[in-house]
Design a protein around this nucleic acid. Structure first.
Lengths: 158, 158
DNA sequence: TATGAATGTGCAAGTTTCTTGCAAATTGTC
DNA sequence: GACAATTTGCAAGAAACTTGCACATTCATA
C-alpha cells in the first residue's frame, strides 16, 4: 500500500517547496538566503521532505520536439463494465504503457483521461490497438490532439 | 519567440535523458557507470542538454495531499469565438492562473483542456468564476474530478 | 511560572560532487 | 592519408553537501 506522508509542513517547508518545484537544482545556500535559514538547516529539511514523501520525485523535463516525439494526445476512455477488478486491470495497463505519461480515473461521462506522448499518429494507432482493442473493457475512446502545449508541469500553488 | 533546440542528441544523450527523467539528482558518476562514459563527459553533456533546451527544466514533484491540495480536476473548455486574439488572451489567462498546472490547446469538440490543482471545491468555484465568467469568451466548460491520479509526470519514452 | 525534554539551528570541519584545464583519442572532412 | 574538429578521461581545484557539536527555541508537564 502506498504510504501517505504524515509529516507536517511548516512555513519554511512551504517556501522550500515553492522554490524546488520550479528549480530543484538550486543550491541549498541559495535557498537558505531566500528564506532566512542556514544552508545545513535547509539541507536537513529537504532530506526530511524527500524521506517522508512530501517531495515524491526529482525529475528533468525534456523537450518533446528535441527528441522527435512532438505529439501530445489527450484520450478520453469509457469502459464497458465498471467492475473493480476490471478497472484495476485497466489502471495497471495504463500504468505500464510507456507512451502514457498521465492517467486520471475521473467522475463524469468518461472513466479515464490519459495524456499520451507519441512520435506520430502511426505510433498512436499502434498504441491504441494494444491498449484498447487487445486489452479489453474499453467501450469507446475519444482522441484530442494537442495543437499547443500552453502550460505543462505547473507547480502546486502554495 | 520560443527558441527551439537544434542540437542533435545521440545515443549517449538519450540514455542520460532516460535516467534523469526518472531521477535528476543521480550523481554524474552513477550515470557514467550506467552508460559507459566518464563523469566529466556526462557532466559536459548534461550542461549542453540544459543550455540547448533539450532539458527544459529540473523540478521537484510534490505530493498534493501532503500540502493539503488533494484535488485534481480536468476541465474541458469550449470558446464562443475562435478569433486568434481572443484565443491568445485565453492562453495568457490560463498560463497566469496559479491553479492551472497544465493547459492544452486541442482539436476536437473542445478547445482547451486544463488540469487544475485546488484544495477543495470552494476554491475551484472561485477559480472558475475568475477564469471563465469574468475572463470572457468561454462558451461552456465541463468539470471532471479525478478520483485517482493513477499516473503523473511519466517520462517521455526514448 | 519554572523546569526539563524535545526539536531545530548555525558553525565549522570533513566528505562528496561538480567543474575545468590539458593532453590524448576519436571522428569527420577533404 | 592528412588535418581539423570534437569528444574524451585524468587530475586538480572549486563548489556543494553532510555531519558532529553546542546552543537556542519550542513544547510539555508539574
Amino acid at each position: 500500500m502506498k504510504k501517505q506522508p504524515v509529516v507536517t509542513v511548516d512555513d519554511f517547508d512551504l517556501k522550500i517547496l515553492q522554490l524546488v518545484q520550479v528549480d530543484n537544482m538550486m543550491p541549498q545556500r541559495a535557498i537558505a538566503d531566500r528564506i532566512g535559514l542556514s544552508a545545513p538547516a535547509v539541507a536537513r529539511r529537504l532530506q526530511q521532505l524527500r524521506e517522508s514523501g512530501v517531495i515524491r520525485r526529482d525529475i528533468a523535463i525534456v523537450n518533446e520536439t528535441a527528441v522527435a516525439r512532438p505529439l501530445t494526445i489527450i484520450v478520453h476512455v469509457t469502459t464497458e463494465n465498471e467492475r473493480l477488478d476490471l478497472l484495476d486491470a485497466m489502471k495497471d495497463r495504463f500504468l505500464r504503457c510507456r507512451q502514457v505519461q498521465q492517467c486520471y480515473y475521473v467522475t463524469g461521462e468518461m472513466d479515464f483521461i490519459l495524456i499520451v506522448n507519441v512520435k506520430d499518429m502511426a505510433e498512436y494507432n499502434e498504441m491504441t490497438r494494444e491498449l484498447f482493442f487487445e486489452g479489453g473493457n474499453v467501450k469507446s475512446f475519444r482522441t484530442c490532439v494537442s495543437m499547443e502545449n500552453v502550460k505543462t508541469n505547473g507547480p502546486i500553488p502554495l
